[in-house]
């Protein structure tokens, strides 16, 4: 067991952690219900400034982009996003907040473009785009169903391969991780796009990996019956939680996601969402799950045998019992 193991302080407090998880999820639900999610520009209504250019300018698109962006800087307006198309008679679309006042900025832009280019080739117009749809109606429902079904399937697999209490713990921690990720994104007001579902799926899978690490240790430790027989469920759990491995996985994934967000500008908010997912996974698998397991294990009082006995295991148990009784007879 690690000295000064931080898990020692958390394992016995299942009521506290369950309450915290529940509060986070309820607050997230309330905020999402009242204020909605903060949507990414892809799922928002916007104002756009469209710069149409002749195919002569295909080679000079970068110069035109620079002219436009310098003009916007001068007018103190910042586009949320830019789309450049590559065909002839193409256009650059700059996206702005739907409430932005672009009248002066567009006039300045027209003057700057006229100065830099031939104005008959480049046309500037302002439009409003009212977002209609970017996710199919059942996208969120199917994502939620997928997470729910995975929780059930994971419960079945772990309950059969390990213990019933572990199966229940895994299912609960998966649902807690998914719920906390969604709630934290709503609370912190991180812009949400269709990619949000990827981060939730990621959090769920990372939670499963972290929880399985703990269960593997518990199963290995259970083989040392002499050491385990005098330990309470809490002590067994504390001894088994692989803090270093869980945090190493979390840090490695955070760094990988951080590099992606740092270098790919369009992936920045997604990287933040994925990071929230990692935090939720750690909270779920490192704090919530061990506390819950310690409670469940002591309640269910499972002896470490698999859910179903196989003939091979029965034979082994018989041999052990026979060997023990021979020792007793010899004594």
């Amino acid at each position: 067991m690690m000295k000064n193991n931080p898990v020692e302080k958390t394992v016995g407090k299942w009521k506290l952690w369950t309450a915290i998880v529940a509060v986070i999820m309820v607050v997230g639900i309330v905020i999402a219900a009242v204020f909605g999610f903060n949507t990414h520009v892809d799922l928002q209504s916007v104002k756009t400034v469209t710069v149409d250019y002749s195919d002569i300018y295909v080679e000079k698109v970068e110069d035109l982009e620079e002219t436009c962006e310098n003009s916007f800087d001068k007018s103190d307006v910042t586009p949320l996003k830019k789309t450049v198309s590559v065909k002839s008679n193409a256009e650059i679309i700059y996206y702005f907040d739907v409430d932005a006042d672009l009248t002066e900025a567009v006039e300045t832009l027209k003057e700057d473009i006229a100065t830099a280019t031939s104005s008959t080739l480049v046309k500037v117009s302002v439009h409003t785009e009212e977002f209609q749809q970017g996710l199919s109606e059942d996208y969120i429902l199917r994502a939620a169903i997928a997470v729910g079904v995975f929780a059930v399937a994971a419960f079945v697999y772990v309950a059969l391969r390990y213990k019933l209490s572990m199966g229940i713990t895994l299912a609960a921690s998966i649902l807690a991780a998914a719920g906390m990720t969604v709630a934290l994104v709503a609370i912190i007001r991180i812009p949400v796009a269709a990619s949000f579902a990827y981060a939730v799926a990621f959090a769920v899978l990372v939670t499963a990996v972290m929880s399985i690490m703990t269960f593997n240790r518990l199963r290995d430790n259970a083989k040392d019956k002499d050491k385990q027989k005098d330990m309470t469920a809490q002590e067994k759990t504390v001894a088994a939680v692989p803090t270093k491995q869980i945090l190493t996985l979390a840090v490695a994934l955070t760094l990988a996601v951080g590099v992606l967000g740092a270098i790919v500008a369009v992936a920045r908010w997604f990287a933040v969402t994925a990071f929230i997912g990692i935090v939720a996974s750690v909270a779920s698998a490192w704090i919530f799950a061990p506390a819950l397991f310690a409670l469940l294990d002591s309640v269910i009082k499972s002896s470490g045998k698999p859910l179903f006995k196989t003939k091979k295991k029965e034979k082994k148990v018989t041999e052990v019992v026979a060997a023990e009784s021979k020792e007793v007879d010899a004594e």
Binding site: R142, A146, V209
Partner: peptide, 23 residues
């Protein structure tokens, strides 16, 4: 340990196929 970890992850990935669109 490794087999169990990947088994659970593969179950998760298979069930994520229920999700639509990008998921």
């Amino acid at each position: 340990h490794i087999i169990d970890t990947y088994a659970v992850l593969l179950i998760g990935a298979l069930l994520m196929l229920i999700g639509g669109g990008g998921l």
